[in-house]
Computed example of a mutant assay.
Amino acid sequence: MTVYVDDMRANFGRMVMCHMVADTDEELHAMAARIGVARKWHQKPGTSHSHYDICLSKRAHAVNFGAIEIDRRGLADLIQRKRALAQNQEKL
């Protein structure tokens, strides 16, 4: 399972949030379920920007379960790779 968590720190009420993304939505949903994040919080499904916003305590759980920590550049690279893959599949 290849899941990533970025280093964003955005305030949301009393929480501080970051992004959790994955190579596939299946991997993303599996990790979300594993760390206790409801599927209703999934954002931008079916796109290269598919992700969950998760609080830092959930981020720590994801890392403990094998998520890879990335920075903003890593997130942008991942989104670009996913977009290119989707475009290549559309051509087939």
Rank of each mutant, 00 (worst) to 15 (best):
A86G: 15
I54W: 02
R9Q: 10
N88A: 04
G13M: 03
I68E: 01
H42P: 01
T47H: 11
Q89A: 08
K40I: 07
D77V: 04
R83A: 12
Q87G: 03
K44L: 09
L78N: 07
H51Y: 06
A76Y: 00
A38W: 01
L78H: 01
T24G: 11
T47M: 06
G66S: 05
K40L: 06
K40P: 09
F65M: 09
L78Q: 09
D23R: 08
A67E: 03
M1G: 00
M15D: 12
C18W: 10
Y4A: 03
V21K: 09
F65G: 00
R59H: 13
V63D: 07
K91T: 05
D6K: 02
L85T: 12
R81D: 14
L75Y: 03
H51D: 05
C55M: 14
Y52I: 02
H61M: 15
A62I: 01
L56V: 14
D53K: 00
R72K: 06
L85Y: 11
V5E: 06
V21E: 08
R72F: 03
D77M: 10
V37Q: 03
V3A: 04
S50N: 10
H61R: 14
G46F: 05
Q43V: 00
S48C: 14
K91H: 12
N11L: 15
R59V: 11
K44I: 08
V63Q: 01
D77F: 08
V3K: 03
R59G: 14
E27Y: 01
K40C: 04
A67C: 03
K91V: 07
G66R: 03
I54N: 00
P45K: 05
T47S: 11
L56W: 13
C18I: 05
Y52F: 03
P45C: 09
N11A: 11
G46E: 07
A33L: 07
D6Q: 08
G46D: 10
R73L: 12
S57C: 13
H61T: 15
H51A: 02
H19T: 05
V63M: 00
L85G: 12
I54C: 03
G46M: 06
A86L: 08
R59A: 14
I54A: 08
R81G: 12
R34S: 13
Q87F: 06
M31C: 08
C55L: 13
R34E: 10
D23S: 10
I70Y: 07
H51F: 05
R73Y: 13
L28C: 09
R73K: 12
A32G: 02
M15L: 14
H42T: 00
D6L: 01
Q43P: 10
G13V: 02
K82N: 08
N88P: 09
R81F: 13
Q89F: 05
